[in-house]
Design a protein around this nucleic acid. Structure first.
Lengths: 361, 361
DNA sequence: AGCGCATGTTGAACCGTTTACACAGGGCGC
DNA sequence: GCGCCCTGTGTAAACGGTTCAACATGCGCT
């Protein structure tokens, strides 16, 4: 039967620690200590207080507690969008680990806009979250680096740990924990998989100059070609705008419209691109893997549905690691760099090359 | 060049409003008023203060502000999981509308566990969020209703608006805004679509007794059968445990293993179930829509990939509406009930029935 | 008995804001 | 020239917790 304290005008008002103290016949200090559980206390007092808490349905005011110097038990995460599967999975990992540690999550979305990201960080700074986790791909020019470094230092000064998740470090003198995954290695493995099946003309779908994630994947692609002694044709690298399904469709469609097919395999920079490209191929009557081999990246839901060989990245583990490292470091200015592994997941989207499209020569 | 105030031991400490006041040569009240922007102030003072704010890189302490009686600009949302597409889309709507209104989002996840949901609400109560939005399916027994009603009243007393999103009202005397979507109507339309194509033996895949969402969908299914004068065979309703893909696979697989096929069409209680069932059918060499017609529910990503006719529900609109209504109501104890429409999305998963499987008679 | 010590409890200061109230000074009507 | 209002600013009291230093109390020891 939760009772509530009546103020002057009879409106219910949430009980405060003072109400509990009065109700239990002890001081506020005693109530505070018993509730925090970190000080010795007499069992009799303890049960009196707990009864008062129950009867008044008391919950502590997080603002008062935060103001009194107790770091709020919260973790902030800033993502591009909560719909995008990669971000959602990372966020899931963050939530899991945060829940395990009794923290709640503050989530900000940016829609990919840098200004909104910075604004979100500012808000998180006001909230004094224990950790601020920035996740995802970014286009790091010099101005960005400069401003972000300023924000990083401000967060450290405010006692919040900054974590960059799937994003390169800001610099040696900027305090931040960095949790990345191996884009280049994954792309190397994926490309090698196609090369081993005899493919030499491999379309790279979804290059995006200036953005770190697609660039690392291009780098792995090129490295694999070089390692296998296959000549690199820049004409096989197709630029994309946004890394979404319809963009994959558009790129493949335009490629097929532009002239005779000059590739036997496709390495899509992510699974959504792959799904879109697959649709464009199907419209031309080209089947995967019989006519065209394809490998994706991310191992997200569409991949299993369309039997796509792809590169698994530990989405949730990224989020979990971010939280774990952030909460572990008691000094908020910590710097650390972790690289999580990726590995190829083989499904049914690659066939041995029978050598039809051999390139423009 | 953000400067930071040095405390005794030389460690940087975030600037407070006092530092700003001292730096600008005015009182803290003046700084507060100028920053809040709601009081008259002299331009000269204003620019002095703004300069000090910039130079010290001052951001207000959200805890102090909250304690001083200003309702924090935040909205809390409690979901089952942030990966699940439906929840993610609702959350996206919440984020959008919250961002538009300058609010940040606190997100709690429950994993479908009622205790964790209640614990999350308790945390949100401590945080004094403007609104607490509970989203999703639930199994409402009497004990649940009782406890949740208590929490609802506590939230109202603390000045937070409770919103139930895609979940039935708690009762006439419990303060909450309810935003639902038309499950029954959508299921009626989906079933009617199959009936109109001549199907009479329609398998309902994914009944889950006690849970509100699947139950409303079953209700729509039965109503459509009745409206078309088609006899209702309870044996065609298959129970499911969790509403996920593998469960859809399992249900269909067991059904096919159990004996000769006694249905010509399937109404899956959501798209994931549909995708799983489709896989089981494919393993038996049964194609959609040539051999079996199928309709899903939700219109989430897998649906488009597998050309599934399904029922669209306004996921994001649910979230947006929840936030909009919650912020609109100035009195936190408001009650309201909104029902958003659903509609069928026709793709390529239904064929006219040629009348092979006619049932057990 | 007097002492030190461990154990529990209390009063009060403090955290950083907002805001009610007081007040200073200038312009204006009388 | 006096009182009045208006504008802008300052002073100080909340807000609801935590925690430090101080203080009772009971106990075993010398």
């Amino acid at each position: 039967m939760p009772r509530r304290i009546a103020s002057g005008d009879g409106k219910p008002r949430p009980a405060t620690i003072k109400d509990v103290a009065r109700h239990a016949g002890v001081s506020v200090a005693t109530v505070s200590r018993i509730l925090s559980g970190t000080y010795p206390n007499a069992p009799a007092t303890r049960s009196k207080v707990m009864r008062a808490v129950r009867e008044l349905d008391y919950v502590a005011n997080a603002h008062a507690r935060g103001l009194a110097g107790v770091r709020p038990k919260s973790v902030a995460i800033v993502v591009n969008s909560v719909i995008s599967p990669h971000y959602a999975h990372v966020a899931q990992g963050v939530h899991e680990e945060a829940a395990r540690a009794g923290r709640l999550c503050i989530v900000g979305t940016t829609g990919g806009d840098l200004e909104r990201e910075l604004a979100a960080i500012q808000l998180m700074r006001e909230e004094h979250a224990e950790a601020v986790i920035l996740v995802g791909n970014i286009n790091p020019d010099e101005a960005y680096r400069e401003r972000m470094a300023g924000y990083a230092r401000a967060l450290a000064a405010a006692g919040s740990q900054l974590v960059l998740c799937g994003r390169p470090p800001l610099g040696p003198d900027v305090p931040a924990i960095v949790v990345e995954y191996d884009n280049t290695g994954g792309a190397f493995a994926a490309t090698s998989h196609l090369l081993s099946a005899g493919h030499k003309r491999i379309l790279f779908l979804g290059r995006r100059s200036g953005y770190t994630t697609p660039e690392s994947r291009v780098a792995g692609y090129r490295a694999a070609l070089a390692a296998h002694g296959v000549p690199h044709d820049p004409g096989l690298e197709v630029d994309g705008a946004r890394m979404v399904r319809r963009e994959g469709y558009r790129m493949m469609r335009e490629r097929l419209d532009a002239g005779p097919r000059d590739f036997t395999a496709v390495f899509a920079s992510n699974d959504l691109i792959a799904a879109g490209a697959r649709e464009a191929l199907r419209e031309r009557g080209l089947r995967i893997p019989e006519d065209v081999s394809m490998v994706g990246f991310d191992d997200l839901p569409p991949a299993a549905d369309i039997d796509l060989t792809t590169v698994y990245i530990p989405h949730e583990e990224l989020g979990r690691t971010a939280v774990r490292l952030a909460l572990k470091s008691e000094t908020p200015g910590a710097s650390e760099h972790v690289l999580l592994g990726t590995h190829i997941v083989v499904r049914d989207s690659v066939c041995p090359n029978v050598g039809e499209a051999s390139g423009p020569d």
